[in-house]
Design a protein around this nucleic acid. Structure first.
Lengths: 244, 244
DNA sequence: AGTGGTCCAATGGTCCAACCAATTCTGCAT
DNA sequence: ATGCAGAATTGGTTGGACCATTGGACCACT
Protein backbone atom coordinates (compact mmCIF):
# COMPACT_ATOMS: atom_id res chain seq x y z
CA UNK A 1 0.00 0.00 0.00
CA UNK A 2 1.12 3.46 -0.70
CA UNK A 3 1.55 5.04 2.67
CA UNK A 4 1.02 8.42 1.03
CA UNK A 5 -2.55 7.57 0.16
CA UNK A 6 -3.53 8.37 3.72
CA UNK A 7 -2.12 11.77 4.46
CA UNK A 8 -2.58 13.17 7.97
CA UNK A 9 -5.77 15.16 8.19
CA UNK A 10 -5.92 18.76 9.32
CA UNK A 11 -8.70 19.68 11.66
CA UNK A 12 -7.90 22.53 14.06
CA UNK A 13 -7.42 25.93 12.53
CA UNK A 14 -8.72 28.59 14.84
CA UNK A 15 -5.95 31.14 14.42
CA UNK A 16 -5.46 30.22 10.79
CA UNK A 17 -9.09 31.11 10.29
CA UNK A 18 -8.36 34.47 11.87
CA UNK A 19 -5.62 35.13 9.36
CA UNK A 20 -7.84 34.08 6.50
CA UNK A 21 -10.53 36.45 7.69
CA UNK A 22 -7.93 39.17 8.00
CA UNK A 23 -6.80 38.63 4.42
CA UNK A 24 -10.41 39.07 3.37
CA UNK A 25 -10.67 42.23 5.39
CA UNK A 26 -7.54 43.74 3.88
CA UNK A 27 -8.91 43.02 0.44
CA UNK A 28 -12.40 44.30 1.18
CA UNK A 29 -11.12 47.54 2.65
CA UNK A 30 -8.40 47.84 0.02
CA UNK A 31 -5.78 48.52 2.68
CA UNK A 32 -2.48 49.85 1.44
CA UNK A 33 1.00 49.30 2.79
CA UNK A 34 1.44 51.13 6.06
CA UNK A 35 -2.26 51.32 6.78
CA UNK A 36 -3.45 50.44 10.25
CA UNK A 37 -5.59 47.42 10.70
CA UNK A 38 -8.26 46.94 13.36
CA UNK A 39 -7.43 46.76 17.04
CA UNK A 40 -6.82 43.37 18.57
CA UNK A 41 -9.82 43.95 20.79
CA UNK A 42 -12.07 44.81 17.87
CA UNK A 43 -10.87 41.82 15.87
CA UNK A 44 -11.52 39.55 18.81
CA UNK A 45 -15.04 40.88 19.17
CA UNK A 46 -15.90 40.85 15.47
CA UNK A 47 -14.50 37.38 14.83
CA UNK A 48 -15.98 36.00 18.01
CA UNK A 49 -12.67 34.67 19.24
CA UNK A 50 -10.53 35.47 22.23
CA UNK A 51 -8.08 38.33 22.01
CA UNK A 52 -5.42 35.78 22.82
CA UNK A 53 -6.18 33.86 19.65
CA UNK A 54 -6.04 37.06 17.64
CA UNK A 55 -2.67 37.80 19.16
CA UNK A 56 -1.30 34.37 18.24
CA UNK A 57 -2.38 34.90 14.67
CA UNK A 58 -0.87 38.38 14.50
CA UNK A 59 2.31 37.11 16.12
CA UNK A 60 2.71 34.67 13.26
CA UNK A 61 2.23 37.42 10.72
CA UNK A 62 4.66 39.60 12.56
CA UNK A 63 7.26 36.83 12.48
CA UNK A 64 6.76 36.58 8.76
CA UNK A 65 7.31 40.30 8.41
CA UNK A 66 3.83 40.92 7.05
CA UNK A 67 2.81 43.22 9.83
CA UNK A 68 4.36 45.55 12.36
CA UNK A 69 3.00 46.14 15.84
CA UNK A 70 3.61 49.33 17.75
CA UNK A 71 2.56 49.38 21.33
CA UNK A 72 0.15 52.18 22.09
CA UNK A 73 -0.28 52.90 18.42
CA UNK A 74 -1.59 49.93 16.52
CA UNK A 75 -0.78 47.17 14.07
CA UNK A 76 0.30 48.19 10.60
CA UNK A 77 0.41 46.42 7.29
CA UNK A 78 4.03 46.00 6.24
CA UNK A 79 3.72 43.87 3.10
CA UNK A 80 1.09 42.95 0.59
CA UNK A 81 -1.05 39.97 1.50
CA UNK A 82 -3.22 37.85 -0.71
CA UNK A 83 -5.13 34.63 -0.16
CA UNK A 84 -2.85 32.49 -2.28
CA UNK A 85 0.43 33.89 -1.10
CA UNK A 86 3.30 31.65 -0.23
CA UNK A 87 5.29 32.37 2.85
CA UNK A 88 8.65 30.70 2.94
CA UNK A 89 10.43 31.45 6.16
CA UNK A 90 14.10 30.73 5.72
CA UNK A 91 16.39 30.66 8.69
CA UNK A 92 20.08 30.75 8.10
CA UNK A 93 22.71 29.90 10.62
CA UNK A 94 25.28 32.62 10.32
CA UNK A 95 27.68 34.31 12.65
CA UNK A 96 29.32 37.65 12.20
CA UNK A 97 32.80 36.35 11.65
CA UNK A 98 34.82 36.92 8.53
CA UNK A 99 33.85 33.63 6.94
CA UNK A 100 30.12 34.24 7.34
CA UNK A 101 30.39 37.70 5.84
CA UNK A 102 32.30 36.36 2.85
CA UNK A 103 29.59 33.76 2.38
CA UNK A 104 26.85 36.36 2.34
CA UNK A 105 28.90 38.24 -0.24
CA UNK A 106 29.10 35.17 -2.47
CA UNK A 107 25.31 34.97 -2.44
CA UNK A 108 25.01 38.66 -3.05
CA UNK A 109 27.47 38.48 -5.93
CA UNK A 110 25.36 35.88 -7.68
CA UNK A 111 22.08 37.67 -7.14
CA UNK A 112 23.32 41.20 -7.72
CA UNK A 113 24.75 40.24 -11.08
CA UNK A 114 21.60 38.44 -12.16
CA UNK A 115 19.37 41.28 -10.99
CA UNK A 116 21.43 43.85 -12.87
CA UNK A 117 21.22 41.75 -16.03
CA UNK A 118 17.47 41.26 -15.74
CA UNK A 119 17.07 44.93 -15.00
CA UNK A 120 18.94 45.85 -18.17
CA UNK A 121 16.64 43.56 -20.12
CA UNK A 122 13.36 44.74 -18.70
CA UNK A 123 13.75 48.38 -17.68
CA UNK A 124 11.33 50.85 -19.20
CA UNK A 125 12.31 54.44 -19.85
CA UNK A 126 10.55 55.45 -16.65
CA UNK A 127 12.44 52.78 -14.73
CA UNK A 128 15.75 54.02 -16.06
CA UNK A 129 14.88 57.56 -15.09
CA UNK A 130 14.03 56.41 -11.58
CA UNK A 131 17.35 54.61 -11.23
CA UNK A 132 19.15 57.68 -12.52
CA UNK A 133 17.43 59.75 -9.86
CA UNK A 134 18.58 57.41 -7.10
CA UNK A 135 22.08 57.46 -8.55
CA UNK A 136 22.17 61.26 -8.49
CA UNK A 137 21.04 61.35 -4.89
CA UNK A 138 23.70 58.83 -3.95
CA UNK A 139 26.48 60.61 -5.77
CA UNK A 140 25.56 63.93 -4.22
CA UNK A 141 25.54 62.36 -0.75
CA UNK A 142 28.94 60.90 -1.54
CA UNK A 143 30.38 64.32 -2.41
CA UNK A 144 28.87 66.34 0.39
CA UNK A 145 29.51 63.81 3.14
CA UNK A 146 32.80 62.65 1.67
CA UNK A 147 32.19 58.94 1.77
CA UNK A 148 29.80 56.18 0.95
CA UNK A 149 26.38 56.64 2.44
CA UNK A 150 24.76 53.36 3.38
CA UNK A 151 21.27 54.72 3.10
CA UNK A 152 21.39 56.27 -0.36
CA UNK A 153 23.58 53.47 -1.69
CA UNK A 154 21.02 50.92 -0.57
CA UNK A 155 18.19 52.91 -2.18
CA UNK A 156 20.00 52.77 -5.49
CA UNK A 157 20.45 49.02 -5.37
CA UNK A 158 16.87 48.45 -4.28
CA UNK A 159 15.64 50.39 -7.30
CA UNK A 160 17.51 47.94 -9.51
CA UNK A 161 16.06 44.91 -7.76
CA UNK A 162 12.58 46.34 -8.13
CA UNK A 163 12.98 46.93 -11.84
CA UNK A 164 14.25 43.37 -12.28
CA UNK A 165 10.62 42.38 -11.85
CA UNK A 166 11.39 39.65 -9.34
CA UNK A 167 10.68 40.62 -5.73
CA UNK A 168 12.70 37.69 -4.45
CA UNK A 169 15.93 39.47 -5.33
CA UNK A 170 15.16 42.34 -3.03
CA UNK A 171 13.93 40.08 -0.24
CA UNK A 172 16.94 37.80 -0.21
CA UNK A 173 19.57 40.46 -0.66
CA UNK A 174 17.86 42.61 1.97
CA UNK A 175 18.33 39.79 4.44
CA UNK A 176 22.00 39.52 3.49
CA UNK A 177 22.32 43.27 3.74
CA UNK A 178 20.87 43.30 7.21
CA UNK A 179 23.15 40.52 8.36
CA UNK A 180 26.11 42.35 6.89
CA UNK A 181 25.33 45.64 8.60
CA UNK A 182 23.99 44.38 11.87
CA UNK A 183 27.33 44.36 13.56
CA UNK A 184 29.58 45.91 10.99
CA UNK A 185 28.52 49.45 10.30
CA UNK A 186 32.20 50.16 9.84
CA UNK A 187 33.30 46.63 9.16
CA UNK A 188 36.49 45.59 10.80
CA UNK A 189 37.64 49.13 11.33
CA UNK A 190 38.14 49.95 7.68
CA UNK A 191 37.19 53.59 7.75
CA UNK A 192 36.43 54.20 4.08
CA UNK A 193 34.64 50.91 3.67
CA UNK A 194 32.83 50.73 0.37
CA UNK A 195 34.67 53.76 -0.97
CA UNK A 196 36.16 51.76 -3.82
CA UNK A 197 32.73 50.60 -4.96
CA UNK A 198 31.55 54.13 -5.74
CA UNK A 199 32.47 54.45 -9.43
CA UNK A 200 30.83 51.16 -10.36
CA UNK A 201 27.39 52.45 -9.43
CA UNK A 202 27.46 54.77 -12.39
CA UNK A 203 28.92 52.16 -14.75
CA UNK A 204 26.15 49.74 -13.76
CA UNK A 205 23.59 52.40 -14.46
CA UNK A 206 25.12 53.17 -17.84
CA UNK A 207 25.01 49.51 -18.88
CA UNK A 208 21.37 49.29 -17.77
CA UNK A 209 20.46 52.44 -19.66
CA UNK A 210 22.18 50.97 -22.71
CA UNK A 211 20.09 47.79 -22.36
CA UNK A 212 23.26 45.75 -22.07
CA UNK A 213 22.58 42.79 -19.74
CA UNK A 214 26.01 41.24 -20.00
CA UNK A 215 27.69 44.59 -19.41
CA UNK A 216 25.51 45.29 -16.40
CA UNK A 217 26.32 41.88 -15.01
CA UNK A 218 30.05 42.46 -15.44
CA UNK A 219 29.95 45.84 -13.71
CA UNK A 220 27.93 44.44 -10.82
CA UNK A 221 30.54 41.74 -10.35
CA UNK A 222 33.27 44.39 -10.25
CA UNK A 223 31.37 46.27 -7.56
CA UNK A 224 31.04 43.22 -5.33
CA UNK A 225 34.71 42.45 -5.90
CA UNK A 226 35.69 45.81 -4.39
CA UNK A 227 33.59 45.07 -1.31
CA UNK A 228 35.23 41.68 -0.96
CA UNK A 229 38.63 43.34 -1.20
CA UNK A 230 37.70 45.81 1.52
CA UNK A 231 36.56 42.95 3.70
CA UNK A 232 39.78 41.02 3.15
CA UNK A 233 41.84 44.13 3.89
CA UNK A 234 39.96 44.59 7.14
CA UNK A 235 40.41 40.96 8.09
CA UNK A 236 44.13 41.19 7.44
CA UNK A 237 44.42 44.31 9.57
CA UNK A 238 42.45 42.67 12.35
CA UNK A 239 44.66 39.61 12.25
CA UNK A 240 47.74 41.81 12.39
CA UNK A 241 46.53 43.81 15.37
CA UNK A 242 45.57 40.70 17.28
CA UNK A 243 49.09 39.38 16.99
CA UNK A 244 50.36 42.14 19.28
CA UNK B 1 26.68 61.72 13.11
CA UNK B 2 26.06 58.25 11.93
CA UNK B 3 22.56 57.42 13.02
CA UNK B 4 23.47 53.76 13.14
CA UNK B 5 25.99 54.28 15.91
CA UNK B 6 23.09 54.51 18.30
CA UNK B 7 21.04 51.40 17.67
CA UNK B 8 17.57 51.39 19.18
CA UNK B 9 17.69 50.01 22.66
CA UNK B 10 15.66 47.03 23.62
CA UNK B 11 13.61 47.76 26.64
CA UNK B 12 10.75 45.31 26.43
CA UNK B 13 11.50 41.99 24.88
CA UNK B 14 9.93 39.41 27.08
CA UNK B 15 9.20 36.85 24.39
CA UNK B 16 12.49 37.45 22.62
CA UNK B 17 14.22 36.76 25.91
CA UNK B 18 12.28 33.53 26.12
CA UNK B 19 13.55 32.46 22.72
CA UNK B 20 17.10 33.38 23.65
CA UNK B 21 16.85 31.30 26.78
CA UNK B 22 15.41 28.49 24.74
CA UNK B 23 18.34 28.61 22.34
CA UNK B 24 20.64 28.30 25.32
CA UNK B 25 18.64 25.38 26.63
CA UNK B 26 18.75 23.54 23.31
CA UNK B 27 22.51 24.02 23.23
CA UNK B 28 23.06 23.01 26.83
CA UNK B 29 20.97 19.86 26.53
CA UNK B 30 22.36 19.10 23.07
CA UNK B 31 18.87 18.53 21.73
CA UNK B 32 18.66 16.88 18.34
CA UNK B 33 16.13 17.33 15.59
CA UNK B 34 12.82 15.79 16.57
CA UNK B 35 13.52 15.94 20.29
CA UNK B 36 10.81 17.25 22.55
CA UNK B 37 11.43 20.44 24.42
CA UNK B 38 9.97 21.36 27.81
CA UNK B 39 6.25 21.89 28.14
CA UNK B 40 4.87 25.38 28.02
CA UNK B 41 3.92 25.21 31.68
CA UNK B 42 7.40 24.21 32.76
CA UNK B 43 8.99 26.89 30.61
CA UNK B 44 6.67 29.50 32.05
CA UNK B 45 7.55 28.46 35.59
CA UNK B 46 11.29 28.16 35.03
CA UNK B 47 11.62 31.45 33.13
CA UNK B 48 9.30 33.28 35.51
CA UNK B 49 7.02 34.50 32.76
CA UNK B 50 3.41 33.88 31.93
CA UNK B 51 2.51 30.85 29.92
CA UNK B 52 0.93 33.17 27.38
CA UNK B 53 4.28 34.85 26.80
CA UNK B 54 5.90 31.47 26.31
CA UNK B 55 3.20 30.64 23.81
CA UNK B 56 3.76 33.85 21.84
CA UNK B 57 7.44 33.04 21.60
CA UNK B 58 6.79 29.46 20.51
CA UNK B 59 4.19 30.66 18.04
CA UNK B 60 6.85 32.81 16.40
CA UNK B 61 9.18 29.81 16.15
CA UNK B 62 6.40 27.66 14.82
CA UNK B 63 5.64 30.23 12.15
CA UNK B 64 9.29 30.18 11.19
CA UNK B 65 9.22 26.43 10.92
CA UNK B 66 11.73 25.92 13.70
CA UNK B 67 9.37 23.95 15.89
CA UNK B 68 6.29 21.77 15.63
CA UNK B 69 3.51 21.64 18.20
CA UNK B 70 1.33 18.61 18.68
CA UNK B 71 -1.61 19.00 20.99
CA UNK B 72 -1.63 16.48 23.74
CA UNK B 73 1.90 15.45 22.93
CA UNK B 74 4.35 18.30 23.12
CA UNK B 75 6.52 20.70 21.19
CA UNK B 76 9.25 19.26 19.03
CA UNK B 77 12.40 20.69 17.50
CA UNK B 78 12.08 20.77 13.75
CA UNK B 79 15.22 22.61 12.67
CA UNK B 80 18.59 23.54 14.06
CA UNK B 81 18.69 26.72 16.08
CA UNK B 82 21.66 28.92 16.86
CA UNK B 83 22.07 32.14 18.80
CA UNK B 84 22.78 34.32 15.78
CA UNK B 85 20.62 33.07 13.00
CA UNK B 86 19.11 35.05 10.24
CA UNK B 87 15.38 34.88 9.65
CA UNK B 88 14.51 35.54 6.06
CA UNK B 89 10.77 35.28 5.50
CA UNK B 90 10.18 35.24 1.77
CA UNK B 91 6.74 36.04 0.49
CA UNK B 92 5.84 35.11 -3.01
CA UNK B 93 2.76 36.80 -4.41
CA UNK B 94 0.42 34.75 -6.51
CA UNK B 95 1.13 31.35 -5.09
CA UNK B 96 1.37 28.51 -7.50
CA UNK B 97 0.99 30.25 -10.79
CA UNK B 98 3.43 30.37 -13.62
CA UNK B 99 4.95 33.71 -12.65
CA UNK B 100 5.92 32.58 -9.17
CA UNK B 101 7.65 29.49 -10.42
CA UNK B 102 9.57 31.47 -13.01
CA UNK B 103 10.70 33.83 -10.28
CA UNK B 104 12.05 31.01 -8.17
CA UNK B 105 13.86 29.75 -11.24
CA UNK B 106 15.51 33.12 -11.79
CA UNK B 107 16.91 32.93 -8.30
CA UNK B 108 17.95 29.37 -8.76
CA UNK B 109 19.65 30.20 -12.03
CA UNK B 110 21.81 32.81 -10.36
CA UNK B 111 22.74 30.64 -7.41
CA UNK B 112 23.14 27.38 -9.27
CA UNK B 113 25.60 28.94 -11.69
CA UNK B 114 27.63 30.56 -8.94
CA UNK B 115 27.68 27.39 -6.86
CA UNK B 116 28.88 25.33 -9.81
CA UNK B 117 31.65 27.83 -10.50
CA UNK B 118 32.78 27.92 -6.87
CA UNK B 119 32.60 24.14 -6.76
CA UNK B 120 34.91 23.88 -9.77
CA UNK B 121 37.35 26.19 -8.03
CA UNK B 122 37.41 24.51 -4.67
CA UNK B 123 36.67 20.83 -5.18
CA UNK B 124 39.24 18.37 -3.88
CA UNK B 125 39.80 15.02 -5.54
CA UNK B 126 37.63 13.40 -2.90
CA UNK B 127 34.88 15.94 -3.54
CA UNK B 128 34.98 15.23 -7.26
CA UNK B 129 34.76 11.52 -6.60
CA UNK B 130 31.73 12.06 -4.38
CA UNK B 131 29.98 14.12 -7.03
CA UNK B 132 30.79 11.45 -9.61
CA UNK B 133 29.20 8.87 -7.35
CA UNK B 134 25.98 10.88 -7.03
CA UNK B 135 25.99 11.37 -10.78
CA UNK B 136 26.26 7.64 -11.41
CA UNK B 137 23.38 6.92 -9.06
CA UNK B 138 21.26 9.52 -10.78
CA UNK B 139 22.06 8.29 -14.26
CA UNK B 140 21.30 4.72 -13.32
CA UNK B 141 17.96 5.75 -11.81
CA UNK B 142 17.25 7.63 -15.01
CA UNK B 143 17.83 4.53 -17.13
CA UNK B 144 16.03 1.98 -15.01
CA UNK B 145 13.01 4.13 -14.24
CA UNK B 146 13.00 5.81 -17.63
CA UNK B 147 12.76 9.37 -16.50
CA UNK B 148 14.17 12.01 -14.21
CA UNK B 149 14.15 11.04 -10.58
CA UNK B 150 13.58 13.99 -8.27
CA UNK B 151 15.32 12.34 -5.37
CA UNK B 152 18.58 11.32 -6.98
CA UNK B 153 18.71 14.48 -9.04
CA UNK B 154 18.42 16.56 -5.92
CA UNK B 155 21.17 14.57 -4.21
CA UNK B 156 23.51 15.36 -7.06
CA UNK B 157 22.85 19.08 -6.88
CA UNK B 158 23.16 19.12 -3.13
CA UNK B 159 26.59 17.56 -3.39
CA UNK B 160 27.68 20.45 -5.58
CA UNK B 161 26.35 23.04 -3.15
CA UNK B 162 28.16 21.34 -0.32
CA UNK B 163 31.47 21.34 -2.14
CA UNK B 164 31.04 25.02 -2.96
CA UNK B 165 31.97 25.57 0.67
CA UNK B 166 29.09 27.94 1.29
CA UNK B 167 26.15 26.44 3.18
CA UNK B 168 23.93 29.37 2.22
CA UNK B 169 23.62 28.03 -1.32
CA UNK B 170 22.11 24.80 -0.17
CA UNK B 171 19.79 26.46 2.32
CA UNK B 172 18.37 29.01 -0.07
CA UNK B 173 18.02 26.71 -3.04
CA UNK B 174 16.50 24.05 -0.81
CA UNK B 175 13.78 26.52 0.10
CA UNK B 176 13.18 27.22 -3.60
CA UNK B 177 13.22 23.52 -4.33
CA UNK B 178 10.62 22.79 -1.71
CA UNK B 179 8.42 25.59 -2.94
CA UNK B 180 8.76 24.33 -6.47
CA UNK B 181 7.76 20.79 -5.63
CA UNK B 182 5.13 21.47 -3.02
CA UNK B 183 2.32 21.87 -5.51
CA UNK B 184 3.97 20.74 -8.70
CA UNK B 185 5.11 17.21 -8.36
CA UNK B 186 4.33 16.88 -12.06
CA UNK B 187 4.37 20.54 -12.97
CA UNK B 188 1.62 21.64 -15.27
CA UNK B 189 0.97 18.20 -16.60
CA UNK B 190 4.19 17.95 -18.53
CA UNK B 191 4.85 14.28 -18.14
CA UNK B 192 8.57 14.13 -18.85
CA UNK B 193 9.30 17.28 -16.89
CA UNK B 194 13.02 17.72 -16.40
CA UNK B 195 13.83 15.14 -19.03
CA UNK B 196 15.71 17.64 -21.15
CA UNK B 197 17.96 18.62 -18.25
CA UNK B 198 19.45 15.15 -17.97
CA UNK B 199 22.55 15.44 -20.22
CA UNK B 200 23.70 18.67 -18.56
CA UNK B 201 24.27 16.95 -15.25
CA UNK B 202 27.18 15.11 -16.75
CA UNK B 203 28.55 18.14 -18.57
CA UNK B 204 28.46 20.11 -15.33
CA UNK B 205 30.35 17.34 -13.62
CA UNK B 206 32.96 17.24 -16.39
CA UNK B 207 33.60 20.97 -16.13
CA UNK B 208 33.95 20.67 -12.35
CA UNK B 209 36.32 17.75 -12.65
CA UNK B 210 38.33 19.81 -15.14
CA UNK B 211 38.50 22.69 -12.65
CA UNK B 212 36.83 24.96 -15.15
CA UNK B 213 34.66 27.48 -13.24
CA UNK B 214 33.43 29.37 -16.28
CA UNK B 215 32.57 26.15 -18.06
CA UNK B 216 30.71 24.80 -15.07
CA UNK B 217 28.79 28.05 -14.81
CA UNK B 218 27.82 27.90 -18.47
CA UNK B 219 26.59 24.30 -18.24
CA UNK B 220 24.57 25.07 -15.11
CA UNK B 221 22.90 27.92 -16.97
CA UNK B 222 22.01 25.56 -19.80
CA UNK B 223 20.45 23.14 -17.33
CA UNK B 224 18.23 25.80 -15.79
CA UNK B 225 17.31 26.97 -19.27
CA UNK B 226 15.87 23.54 -20.09
CA UNK B 227 13.77 23.63 -16.96
CA UNK B 228 12.50 27.07 -17.86
CA UNK B 229 11.60 25.78 -21.30
CA UNK B 230 9.67 22.88 -19.80
CA UNK B 231 7.82 25.31 -17.58
CA UNK B 232 6.95 27.58 -20.48
CA UNK B 233 5.76 24.61 -22.52
CA UNK B 234 3.52 23.55 -19.67
CA UNK B 235 2.13 27.05 -19.29
CA UNK B 236 1.36 27.26 -22.99
CA UNK B 237 -0.43 23.92 -22.91
CA UNK B 238 -2.42 24.98 -19.87
CA UNK B 239 -3.43 28.22 -21.54
CA UNK B 240 -4.51 26.32 -24.63
CA UNK B 241 -6.61 23.80 -22.74
CA UNK B 242 -8.33 26.50 -20.70
CA UNK B 243 -9.54 28.16 -23.88
CA UNK B 244 -11.90 25.32 -24.53
C1' DA C 1 0.15 -13.62 23.52
C1' DG C 2 -2.78 -10.53 21.37
C1' DT C 3 -6.71 -7.57 20.61
C1' DG C 4 -9.64 -4.04 21.74
C1' DG C 5 -11.71 -0.97 25.27
C1' DT C 6 -11.66 2.29 29.15
C1' DC C 7 -9.69 5.46 32.00
C1' DC C 8 -6.49 9.06 33.32
C1' DA C 9 -2.77 12.19 33.44
C1' DA C 10 -0.13 15.28 30.54
C1' DT C 11 -0.04 18.77 26.95
C1' DG C 12 -1.21 22.13 23.63
C1' DG C 13 -5.41 25.32 22.31
C1' DT C 14 -8.69 28.67 23.76
C1' DC C 15 -10.88 31.81 26.70
C1' DC C 16 -11.51 35.55 30.21
C1' DA C 17 -10.56 39.51 33.04
C1' DA C 18 -7.46 42.44 34.67
C1' DC C 19 -3.38 45.31 34.75
C1' DC C 20 1.07 47.39 32.70
C1' DA C 21 3.55 50.35 29.26
C1' DA C 22 3.88 53.09 25.26
C1' DT C 23 1.53 56.09 22.28
C1' DT C 24 -1.82 59.36 20.80
C1' DC C 25 -5.44 62.42 21.48
C1' DT C 26 -7.71 66.21 24.20
C1' DG C 27 -8.40 70.21 26.42
C1' DC C 28 -6.90 73.57 29.58
C1' DA C 29 -3.61 77.15 30.92
C1' DT C 30 -0.50 80.33 29.13
C1' DA D 1 -1.57 79.65 18.57
C1' DT D 2 1.44 76.99 21.84
C1' DG D 3 2.82 73.85 25.18
C1' DC D 4 2.02 70.73 28.60
C1' DA D 5 -0.58 67.54 31.73
C1' DG D 6 -3.94 64.11 31.86
C1' DA D 7 -7.23 60.98 29.69
C1' DA D 8 -8.16 57.56 26.28
C1' DT D 9 -6.37 54.14 23.20
C1' DT D 10 -3.56 50.22 22.00
C1' DG D 11 -0.34 46.57 22.19
C1' DG D 12 2.20 43.61 26.03
C1' DT D 13 1.86 40.69 30.08
C1' DT D 14 -0.14 38.14 33.76
C1' DG D 15 -2.76 34.40 36.14
C1' DG D 16 -6.22 31.29 36.16
C1' DA D 17 -9.57 28.38 34.16
C1' DC D 18 -11.47 24.98 30.97
C1' DC D 19 -11.52 22.19 26.51
C1' DA D 20 -9.55 18.73 23.02
C1' DT D 21 -6.19 15.63 21.89
C1' DT D 22 -2.73 12.46 22.88
C1' DG D 23 -0.40 8.50 24.78
C1' DG D 24 0.27 5.30 28.21
C1' DA D 25 -1.60 2.15 31.96
C1' DC D 26 -4.70 -1.10 33.00
C1' DC D 27 -8.09 -4.57 32.13
C1' DA D 28 -11.42 -7.85 30.02
C1' DC D 29 -11.97 -10.95 26.52
C1' DT D 30 -10.49 -14.03 22.88
Amino acid sequence: MDQNSLPPIQITARDDAVLKALVGFVRAEALQLGDRLPTERILAERLKVSRNTVREALTRWEGLGLVERRQGSGTYLKAAVSPDMLHMPLTLAGGNDFTSLMQTLEIRRALEAEAAALCAERASQADIAEIARKLDIMEQAFRTREGMSSEEDWEFHQAIYRVSGNPLFEQIIAAMHELFHRFWEHPLGVRDFGHASFPYHRTIYERIAARDPQGARAEALKLIATVEDDLKRGAAKLKLSSQT
